[in-house]
């Protein structure tokens, strides 16, 4: 009983311990290897890191919920791109341009709505056809990407709105706008998953779907709502990022699903569902970004980042398996 508790603490704490190790390592290694004179643990550097974590981070939060619920979403990268196009494209529409800065909230709203609708389509298909979410979203990953090209063509779309850029680059209490969005989203979703009936039911469904069905929980609407949510979050991520960059390429967001899943798994969420935490995912996102920056800081080629992250993901899996082994007498199947 207590060993379970220890394991739980270990699991929740592991990602933060890993972040500490990273910080220490890069700080010390940086002293000897750094290409710049700046210290790694520089405050501004850390703030920037948080900001840079935001795009993948916001999506990873949604992925956590989807995975706790026992599903997966491979279409988030395409949803991200499509929402970005809606955001930038809609601001060039005459109707919106006539509205001056009021176009901004409207464009945001349209982009977020796009994300939510794309999510809803996934959710509805998963719910009503009973086809596995992996396959449904594998399909819509292609399909939504196709829509991106159909709406946008093959050329990048650009539209810089300086009011928007100012907003996106602003700092409030030292944090960038993007960081605020990431942290607020994390807080809201954490509250949702730990405090609301929907959140608890999502855990129950992922943990033991049959039990949830037997207890009369309506599995479908809960899954649907979570898909809407991840679509919305993918759009939110796009909105935050492209408000500043102002230019979207139809291939943007590719492989985001894989990065998001990596962050979620690093944070300890179970692939089979029913277990995981929003806060740990935040840790996973930060750990990955830290690794990226840290490797750059000590002068490692940027290429090695992918290699290291991939191997760390596998190492985490191996470690998790070792922790869960029940001993030599276990059935060898």
């Amino acid at each position: 009983m207590t060993s379970n508790r220890y394991r739980d603490i270990l699991k929740h704490g592991a990602i933060w311990a890993f972040i500490l190790v990273e910080l220490t390592f890069f700080s010390i290694a940086g002293e000897y290897l750094s290409v710049s004179d700046k210290a790694f643990m520089d405050f501004d550097n850390m703030l920037l890191l948080l900001k840079q974590s935001a795009p993948i981070g916001i999506i990873a939060l949604g992925m956590t919920i989807i995975m706790i619920n026992g599903n997966i979403d491979l279409s988030v990268g395409a949803t991200y791109a499509l929402s970005a196009i809606v955001l930038l494209d809609s601001m060039t529409w005459p109707a919106l341009q006539a509205m001056g800065d009021w176009a901004i909230p409207l464009a945001w709203g349209l982009a977020l709505l796009t994300g939510a609708i794309l999510g809803a389509i996934n959710g509805l298909i998963v719910w009503k056809t009973g086809v596995d979410a992996f396959i449904v979203t594998l399909g819509s990953m292609l399909g939504y990407r196709g829509l991106v090209f159909m709406i946008n063509g093959e050329q990048p779309t650009s539209h810089l709105n300086w009011t928007l850029v100012d907003f996106a680059e602003a700092q409030f209490l030292g944090l960038h706008t993007a960081s605020w969005f990431l942290l607020t989203a994390a807080l809201v979703l954490w509250l949702m998953m730990t405090r609301t009936v929907h959140g608890r039911n999502a855990y129950a469904i992922g943990n033991n779907r049959e039990a949830a069905v037997n207890a009369g929980i309506r599995v479908g609407p809960h899954m649907m709502w979570n898909f809407v949510l991840i679509g919305f979050l993918a759009a939110l991520s796009a909105v935050v990022f492209y408000s500043e960059s102002g230019s979207v390429n139809p291939n943007d967001g590719m492989l985001f699903e894989l990065w998001a899943i990596t962050a979620v798994v690093l944070g300890g969420t179970k692939l089979t569902g029913g277990y995981g935490s929003i806060i740990s995912t935040l840790g996973g996102v930060i750990a990955i970004q830290l690794l990226r920056k840290g490797l750059g800081h000590i002068g490692a080629a940027t290429e090695t980042v992918n290699l290291v992250i991939g191997l760390i993901l596998i190492a985490v899996l191996l470690l998790d398996r070792q922790l869960n082994l029940k001993g030599k007498q276990e059935l060898k199947i």
Binding site: L258, I261, T262, V265, L271, A301, T302, E303, T304, V305, N306, L307, V308, I309, G310, L311, I312, L313, I314, L317
Partner: peptide
């Protein structure tokens, strides 16, 4: 997850 990790790792290896 293993092949997801390897997707990333092999990409790094290639680069």
């Amino acid at each position: 997850i293993v092949t997801l990790g390897m997707l990333s790792a092999i990409h790094g290896l290639t680069l």
